[in-house]
Design a protein around this nucleic acid. Structure first.
Lengths: 240, 240
DNA sequence: CGAAACTTTGATCTCTGTCAAGATTAGTGG
DNA sequence: CCACTAATCTTGACAGAGATCAAAGTTTCG
């Protein structure tokens, strides 16, 4: 659940910075401070669980530092990562009694924890925040569907290319796009996100490196070619 | 975009039936009649386009009769169906300037069309409806993620089994589950939803029929075994 | 009734998964 | 800081699920 409230709450949490030039409804200062008063700061060690699918949903979290992975698992251990949460993203829906997916901290993670019922009450009473959450949730749905086409139609190489380009954009939020792309995820994480095996991911990377399309570093990649259009850019992709 | 407003608007559209026992916020009669006044009835022939990804978003639709398919396409013709819309479901998000996926009528379809800006204005002014939309959108995200695990982890047979069981539940909304499952979708539709080819879908079906798990009829299937737990039920699936 | 569209079935191929070693990297304790 | 062990990553050989190509059967619909 990627938050639209993120700039709001995040800025409030770390400093009382004023809002930027959003043209949509924006929570009032009063709404905001009420929300902030609900928050409890919580930390999670790298690789620890934040919560698990199907256990009772007691809180909504906003991630403030680090990277988390949202995933679903099958009984036999197969795992599908359905998305990643970065600073500013909300995790957990206040509308379900139970969590609809599991979340693990990938790096060390810090969150603002909001008790579910209180968060829900807050939303009911604060239409502007409600509106922002709805926008946010709509983006989330769009992102999920975007990923479906990869999972359903993509080859291993297409999946990886698409992933790394969009990951680069995600981690570079707002900032300038760099060809140096930090990659705190393990091969397993990438594989489980793309519906591949670690071996296939590894082979794709080796091939791309051999062809001078990327340079593989520990915990990072360097994309070759111009910053605007790295060689990796495979997008025959996208829309008919 | 599966609507929560569906019972509301649908009942208003067809009759002024009172609401059922929802315990959440419900739009007031005033809100509702305002919404209904925005609606324009629109029909789409089977296989016609409702709208196409990336064209300007001018309206939100609520499907009232029929089945529609939401999909994304790649330049080379590969297609991923990301979901189906049935009566009561909303199609199109009011928050994006352009449609984020394409929609085709599968059977003949009737919709209520709401001009986007007016719908947006309505939402801003009617917090209770806003709340319902948010709940609805959250369900949509959950459904999308649910499908991801199939696309990423499932074998052909698992994909099909999961699909048909959930399709049966979807078309049987509210009613009793029957082992006779109408299937207005073509093999291509099923294949594009599951990330398979039509040949593979066909082979899976033939195998299941040979093993007396289903009976294949034109435009329908009959599941063998008890109504509660058809033989098809493969669910080693679901949650660790 | 007959042509077009869709579905089934078969033969073959290929991409990715699986299994099995090695090679790196990361983590730990002396 | 280094050495040693565990975890992670890469690479290879092989196998198999599903894709592709091709043709015959069905259904649909004018």
């Amino acid at each position: 659940m990627v938050g639209v409230l993120r700039e709001a709450v995040a800025s409030k949490e770390y400093a009382s910075a004023p809002f930027g030039g959003r043209k949509q409804l924006v929570p009032t200062e009063v709404e905001l401070s009420e929300l902030v008063s609900l928050a409890r700061r919580t930390r999670f060690a790298a690789k620890s669980k934040v919560f698990t699918e199907s256990e009772p949903s007691i809180a909504v979290y906003m991630l403030t530092i680090g990277v988390a992975g949202l995933y679903k698992m099958l009984a036999d251990g197969r795992r599908q990562i359905v998305g990643f949460a970065l600073p500013g993203d909300f995790i957990g829906s206040p509308f379900c009694d139970r969590y609809t997916c599991s979340v693990d901290a990938i790096s060390e993670v810090t969150t603002c924890q909001f008790p579910r019922e209180q968060f829900l009450t807050f939303l009911r009473a604060n239409p502007k925040s409600l509106y922002l959450m709805l926008e946010s949730e709509a983006r989330e749905t769009t992102a999920a569907r975007e990923h479906m086409i990869l999972l359903g139609c993509g080859t291993a190489e297409e999946k990886f290319a698409e992933f790394i380009i969009s990951w680069r954009a995600t981690v570079g939020r707002g900032g300038v796009l760099s060809n140096f792309v930090p990659l705190p995820l393990s091969r397993k994480d990438v594989a489980d996100f793309l519906g591949l095996t670690i071996e296939t991911v590894s082979r794709v990377l080796s091939r791309l490196e051999r062809d001078n399309v990327v340079r593989v570093l520990p915990k990072a990649l360097v994309l070759m070619g111009s910053t605007e259009t790295p060689l990796l850019f495979k997008r025959s992709y996208k829309v008919a």
